[in-house]
Simulated scan of single mutants.
Amino acid sequence: MADILLSPTNFWFSVALIAVFFVFILELISVFFGVSMLGLNDDIGDIDSNGFLSSAFANFLNLNKVPFLIWLVIFLTLFGLAGLIINGLTPVQLPQLLSITLAIAIGILITRKCAVFIAALLPSSETSAINNDDFIGAVAEITIGRASRGNPAEAKFTDSFSQPHFVLVEPFEKEELFAQGERVILVQKSEYSWLATRYQ
């Protein structure tokens, strides 16, 4: 086995498998310290066409399906194994460039499929963050102060994720007044506060 791995024709395939082994060891060490390397560069699939990978090519590789390090480990493993199998099964020794090219092609094609399968197994994360546009139409209750135009008061509302938000509100109509405990509807963001109308 050592003779096969150390053979000059299998040099790059052996390097790939050794790299996977070292990543495995580093991951074990990092997990021991409470962190994980597997999420590093997990947004590489979103690189635009001005980067070293176009978004279309990244999508083809399914780089956006799983964290990049997971994708890379899968590819290196398949590349290394495919190269060893190609060199082991062919009756004549193939040129190294040809065997590497075949191993890359096989590795990429199988890695694409594996990425989809692994993505289905990974837990998906759903963010509870919302932006200012999502505040429009929210029903808030005046909690502190009395709101008039130019004199905002604090109000509170709860979003669809059951997260409370505290905002400063003032009436949309200049003559309107909002007392503590009243409910209002947020309609427009101003520079420092939200303009609101009374909740009927």
Rank of each mutant, 00 (worst) to 15 (best):
T77M: 10
G150Y: 11
V187C: 02
K174L: 12
L109G: 12
L97E: 15
Y192R: 00
A129D: 07
I25P: 03
L78H: 06
N131I: 07
A19D: 03
E154F: 03
N41F: 13
N10C: 10
V73I: 15
Q200G: 11
K113T: 05
V35D: 15
L6Q: 09
L72R: 12
S124L: 05
S49M: 12
P67M: 04
I29R: 04
V35P: 14
D43V: 09
S30R: 04
I29F: 10
F68E: 06
E154N: 02
I25Y: 03
E141G: 13
F68D: 06
Q180F: 08
G45H: 10
F57V: 15
V23F: 12
R112V: 11
I110G: 08
R146A: 13
F117T: 11
N64A: 03
V20G: 05
G39F: 10
P95F: 06
F79A: 05
F24T: 08
L61E: 04
K174E: 14
D43H: 09
A16V: 11
S193M: 00
L97I: 15
L61R: 01
I29G: 00
P171G: 02
A129N: 11
E126Y: 05
G181E: 13
T111N: 14
V167I: 04
G145C: 13
L40K: 05
N62L: 02
P164E: 03
I185D: 02
D133A: 07
R112A: 10
R183M: 10
M1T: 11
K156T: 00
K189L: 00
L40H: 09
I85D: 08
N62E: 00
E176T: 10
E126K: 15
F11I: 09
E141Q: 12
G80W: 01
